[in-house]
Structure formats: C-alpha cells, structure tokens
C-alpha cells in the first residue's frame, strides 16, 4: 500500500505524452511576443476542422497558418495585419471574433438589446403591480355592499 503513491506518480509521468499538444517549436525574443503569438493562434479558427482553433488543430492547413502567423510576426506585422492576411485568403470564417460592421452589428448589439428589453419588461410588470396596489381594493360602494352580504350570511348562520 505504501507503494501506491509511487505507482500513481509513475502513471502520471507516463500519461504526459498523451496530452501533448501541437509539436513544432518557435523561438521568440521576448515572453510578450510569445504570448502575443499564443493569443493570435487561439483566436484563429481552422478552416478544415471547423470547431478547433489553429493552436489546437493538427491539420496541415493549421500548421501552415501558424507558420504564417510566426513569419509575419518576425517581419514586424501587427495583429490586425496578420489576421487581415489570413482573412484575405480564407475568409472571415477564420476569425472567432467577427469584426463590428453593418452586417454584424445586430450580432454584437444583441446582448445589450436583450438585456435592455428584459429590463423594460420587468420594469413594466413592476410598475403595473405598483399601480394596482395604490388603488383601494374595493370602492366605498362595493365595500358597503360586501358588508351587507356578509351580514345577511351571518344572520342565516345564527338562525340555524
């Protein structure tokens, strides 16, 4: 039983390669550059394997795209230029974040529209409920009639 931790440790060491990611290695001058690269490839979508970003994908086309991102970074290109170059080849599909323009404004604005719409509905419901509370539940006339009816009912009950 004392061997169990050691056994588990060995198992964990062996499981390392199974979760190893994409293999090629790029050299970056600074840590910030490397982070920029990681950020870029995690936001670009693989055209072949459509539900993966190019950071996770092993498809040859993703490797080509990573190579291109790296090459353009070494040439001093900005993020917009790099994404733009890939969009020019593969289409807007490769961007996980679509740009804000006339066609996508509804998509971007929808969360705000839904939130404001929901808020207005709730406000409306509350406002109507409040207004109903302010009104006396019964008018004086109705109250008198109700009392009359109740009195006659209790009379009947007394007689029994």
């Amino acid at each position: 039983m004392r061997l169990l931790p050691a056994f588990l440790a060995v198992l964990m060491m062996l499981s390392g390669p199974a979760i190893a990611e994409v293999s090629e290695v790029y050299d970056f001058d600074t840590r910030a550059e490397e982070q920029r690269y990681q950020q870029l490839i995690s936001e670009l979508r693989c055209p072949k394997c459509q539900n993966q970003n190019i950071a996770d994908s092993n498809a040859p086309i993703s490797k080509d795209m990573r190579d291109e991102v790296y090459r353009m970074m070494q040439d001093g290109a900005s993020n917009d230029q790099i994404v733009g170059a890939l969009v020019d080849r593969f289409g807007e599909f490769v961007q996980y974040k679509p740009p804000v323009d006339n066609r996508t404004i509804l998509l971007w604005a929808f969360p705000a529209i839904a939130t404001i719409g929901g808020f207005l509905i709730v406000a409306g419901v509350v406002w109507r409920a409040r207004r109903r509370e302010d009104e006396p539940p019964l008018s004086a006339e109705d109250r008198a009639r109700a009392e009359q009816i109740l009195a006659s009912q209790s009379d009947k009950a007394d007689r029994r």
């Binding site: 055209p47 072949k48 040859p60 086309i61 080509d64 291109e68 080849r89 593969f90 289409g91």
Partner: peptide, 12 residues
C-alpha cells in the same frame, strides 16, 4: 510547399 495553395485559401 503549398504556397500558392495557401494564397488561394485551399484548405482541403
């Protein structure tokens, strides 16, 4: 090397 393919946006 697939350079023209890349420029054409060939993905498969």
């Amino acid at each position: 090397k697939g350079t023209l393919g890349f420029d054409l946006g060939v993905y498969g």
